[in-house]
Amino acid sequence: MKNIFLTIIAVLIVGIVSVKAQNKAKIQTDTIHVSGICDMCEKRIVDAAYIKGVKRADWDKNTGILKVVYNSQKTSISEIEKNIAATGHDAGKTKANINDYKKLPECCAYKEVGIH
């Protein structure tokens, strides 16, 4: 009965240890600017940032800064930028295609802000 819980804890610990070992791989942290406005944007941007090799992505709505932690042997910052830009958000040096931008939900249309 309690054994099952102990097993689960053991599995978790093993998982953590194996992950620790993996940390010797090239883990890199970068910050890039991603254009967006609202909470919906945050979800879109963070979802798009999580490609294979990405450990963690946090986007700050107020500053537009995306902090991304990734394994540089599996992916690169330009890959991540490309994937985000494909959802319509300008990411770092990679600008979104105008057709992708037009597909953004109303509240995420960041280019309309400030034109008026």
Partner: peptide, 9 residues
């Protein structure tokens, strides 16, 4: 307290 440029709605 933040140093960044804020965007406030």
């Amino acid at each position: 307290t933040a140093n960044d440029t804020l965007r406030i709605y």
